[in-house]
Design a protein around this nucleic acid. Structure first.
Lengths: 214, 214
DNA sequence: AACTAATTTCAATATATGTTTAATCTTTTA
DNA sequence: TAAAAGATTAAACATATATTGAAATTAGTT
C-alpha cells in the first residue's frame, strides 16, 4: 500500500538520519532499512532533501500544536496577569520531554535529529527557523510579559541557552553517564526535566530587573 | 614542505568539517580546498577518520592546557577555601570564548565542529569523552567542593546544561539573530560570555543545599 | 656529490552515490 | 469489466567516493 511504504521510508529515514546525520546516510541505506525498492524513496518524496523535510515536518506539526496549547492554557489560567515564569518554561519543554520519554523509538530518533540540526551551521539557521521560530516568538512574547523590567536582549540570550541545554539532552549521546560514573542516566528524561526547568528559570530570573545582580 | 601541506590539509579539513560535518565532506573536497593532490591526505593522515582525529587533537591540546591553567590559578587564589562558583564557571568557559573570539577563522571552525560532535549520538559520546572528560572531571571536582551541600547528581546535570548552552553558542548558526530581530548577534561572543556565566552560575546555585528551592 | 629517505604526483582500483527511465504490477474509478 | 491512475520493480545513468600503487621529484645527510 502507498501510505504504508511512505511511513516505512519516513521511519527508516528518521532512524538513520538520527544516528548518522543528513550527509551520513544514503538513499539506498534508507530504502534497505525500510525493506523497500531504492527507487521508491525518490518516487514518493523526490530529492533527498525533500525526504528530510518530510521527516522534520511530520512530528513538528504535532509538537507545535501541543506546545502552543500548553502555553495558551497557561496564559488563560493566569489572566489577566502574566503567568509565572516557571510555568512558561515548563510549557516550552513539557511536550518535548514527554514525547521523547513516552512516544517510542520514532520520537527519540526525531529529537536526536533536532539536536544535530540545532547545532549545524548550515542547516540550523534554516531548518530550525522554518519549523520552530513562530512558536519561539510566541514564547518569547509571553516571557517578556512575565519579566517586564528585563531587557529583551538579555532574554533572547537566555532563550538561546535554554535551546542549547534542551537539545543536548535530546542528542542521545550518553556522555553524562560516563562522566558522572553512572550517577546520571541521560535516558531518564524525568530526571532531566525535574532539574532543567528550575535551572533555566533561575537563569532567566537574574535578568528580572535591567540591572543584573551578578 | 611536509609540515606545510600537513597544516594546509588540517586547515582545509577543519573548515569543511565545520560547515558540513564529518560525513558531509569528502577527502577530495578537502584536498581541493587545500590546493593539494588528493593522495596527500591519505599519505599524511591515513583514513578519513584519522584525519578528523588529528583536526580535533590539534586544538584540544591547546585548550585543555589553558583551561586547566585557569582553574589551577583560581584554586590557588582561593586557598585554602574553595573558590567562588562563578570563578570556576568562568575558568571553564573563558578560554573557549576567548579563542573563538580572537583566535581567527580556524578556531571558529574548530568550535563549530565541537558543537556538532557534542550533539552527535554516534560521535559525541566517543570523541568528547576522549578529548574533554579528564578536564571535565577536574572541573566537577572543584564545583562539588564549592557547593559541598549539593547532591553530586544535580551538579552533573547542571554541567550537562552548561555544556549544551555553551556548544550551541559555538555552532555558528545565527538563528538567534533572526529570532531577536537583530537585537542579538551570535558572533558577538563577549555579549554571550557576559550573560552565560551568571546565567549558569544562577542555575547551579539553586542546588546549593540538597533541598532544591523550586 | 652521492645516496637515502621523505614527499608529491598521476593513474587506477573497485565501489557507492542520487536520480531517472521504462516496463510491470496493483488498485481505484467509471 | 474496461480504462485510468497509482505503485512497484529492475536496470541503467553519469558521477563521486575512499583508498592504493608505482613512478617521479624533492629534501636531508654523510
Amino acid at each position: 500500500m502507498a501510505l504504508d511504504t511512505k511511513t516505512l521510508i519516513l521511519d527508516a529515514a528518521e532512524k538513520l538520519f538520527a544516528t548518522r546525520g543528513f550527509y551520513g546516510v544514503s538513499m539506498r541505506q534508507i530504502t534497505i532499512e525500510a525493506g523497500v525498492d531504492p527507487a521508491l524513496a525518490n518516487y514518493h518524496f523526490g530529492k533527498k532533501r525533500n525526504l528530510f523535510d518530510a521527516v522534520m515536518l511530520r512530528r513538528a506539526e504535532v509538537l507545535n500544536r501541543e506546545r502552543i496549547q500548553m502555553l495558551d492554557d497557561c496564559l488563560r489560567r493566569a489572566k489577566p496577569n502574566p503567568p509565572p515564569l516557571e510555568e512558561i518554561i515548563d510549557a516550552f519543554t513539557h511536550a518535548l520531554l514527554n514525547r521523547s520519554n513516552k512516544g517510542g523509538a520514532g520520537w527519540k530518533h526525531y529529537f536526536a535529529i533536532i539536536a544535530q540540526i540545532n547545532n549545524h551551521p548550515e542547516l540550523g539557521g534554516v531548518i530550525m527557523t522554518q519549523y520552530f521560530d513562530p512558536l519561539a516568538k510566541k514564547f518569547m512574547k509571553a516571557i517578556t510579559r512575565a519579566l517586564p523590567d528585563a531587557q529583551p536582549e538579555d532574554l533572547y540570550w537566555c532563550y538561546h541557552f535554554l535551546s542549547g541545554a534542551l537539545t543536548l539532552t535530546f542528542s542521545g549521546t550518553n556522555r553524562i553517564n560516563n562522566l558522572s560514573d553512572g550517577l546520571c542516566n541521560a535516558s531518564d528524561l524525568d530526571a532531566v526535566h525535574e532539574r532543567l526547568v528550575p535551572f533555566i528559570t533561575a537563569g532567566f530570573s537574574i535578568f528580572k530587573s535591567s540591572v543584573s545582580q551578578r
